[in-house]
Amino acid sequence: MLYFNGRTNGMYKILHLFRLGKFANDNIKFMNENFSNNYHEFWIYGSRINAETKLDLHSFKNVKYVRNIIEKLRTKKVYDFDKIIYHGVFEQEIINFFAKERKLLKRLYLYFWGGDKFYIQNNKWNNLKKKYVIRNAHGIINILPEEKGYMQKYYHPKGKFFCAKYYADYGLMKSIKEQKQVEKDYIAIQVGHSATFTNKHIQIFHLLSKFKDESIKVYVPLSYGNKNYAQRVIKEGKKIFGEKLIALTEYLCEDEYDQFLKHMDIGIFAMNRQQAMGNIQTLLYFGKKIYLRDRSVLVHYFRNEKHCDICTINEISKMEYEDFISFSDISKKNNGRMIEALLRIEPRIKAWNKIFND
Rank of each mutant, 00 (worst) to 15 (best):
134 I>R: 00
69 I>A: 08
129 K>N: 12
25 N>P: 03
4 F>S: 14
228 N>L: 14
149 G>T: 12
38 N>S: 13
256 E>Y: 06
91 E>L: 13
168 A>P: 00
326 S>D: 14
151 M>H: 05
5 N>E: 11
264 M>C: 09
81 F>A: 08
10 G>F: 05
103 K>R: 10
235 K>S: 14
261 L>T: 07
257 Y>R: 06
303 R>V: 10
46 G>T: 12
135 R>M: 10
248 L>F: 10
94 I>E: 02
281 Q>A: 13
235 K>Y: 10
222 L>W: 04
55 L>S: 08
44 I>T: 08
37 N>C: 12
98 F>I: 06
325 I>C: 03
274 Q>R: 04
35 F>S: 04
27 N>A: 06
33 E>M: 09
38 N>D: 15
199 N>V: 00
338 M>Y: 02
171 G>D: 09
87 H>M: 08
352 W>S: 06
342 L>M: 15
4 F>M: 10
18 F>T: 05
98 F>L: 04
277 M>L: 15
36 S>E: 13
49 I>E: 13
322 E>N: 15
38 N>Q: 11
151 M>L: 15
349 I>R: 03
210 K>V: 13
279 N>W: 01
166 Y>A: 06
104 L>V: 07
177 K>R: 10
10 G>E: 14
110 L>E: 01
301 Y>G: 07
13 K>S: 13
109 Y>K: 05
336 G>Q: 09
159 G>W: 01
331 S>E: 15
16 H>G: 05
280 I>K: 03
239 K>L: 11
300 H>L: 07
346 E>G: 05
232 R>M: 12
86 Y>C: 03
54 K>A: 11
154 Y>P: 03
62 N>H: 03
110 L>S: 00
42 F>Y: 13
140 I>A: 02
80 D>A: 09
320 E>H: 13
219 Y>F: 15
248 L>P: 00
357 N>T: 15
242 G>D: 10
357 N>C: 13
286 F>K: 01
13 K>N: 15
154 Y>C: 03
330 I>L: 12
210 K>Q: 15
6 G>W: 06
84 I>D: 08
215 S>M: 01
236 E>F: 07
291 Y>A: 07
340 E>M: 08
146 E>L: 12
300 H>P: 02
96 N>T: 08
309 D>C: 11
295 R>H: 15
178 E>Q: 14
28 I>Q: 03
50 N>K: 11
228 N>P: 05
91 E>V: 11
256 E>I: 05
221 P>Y: 04
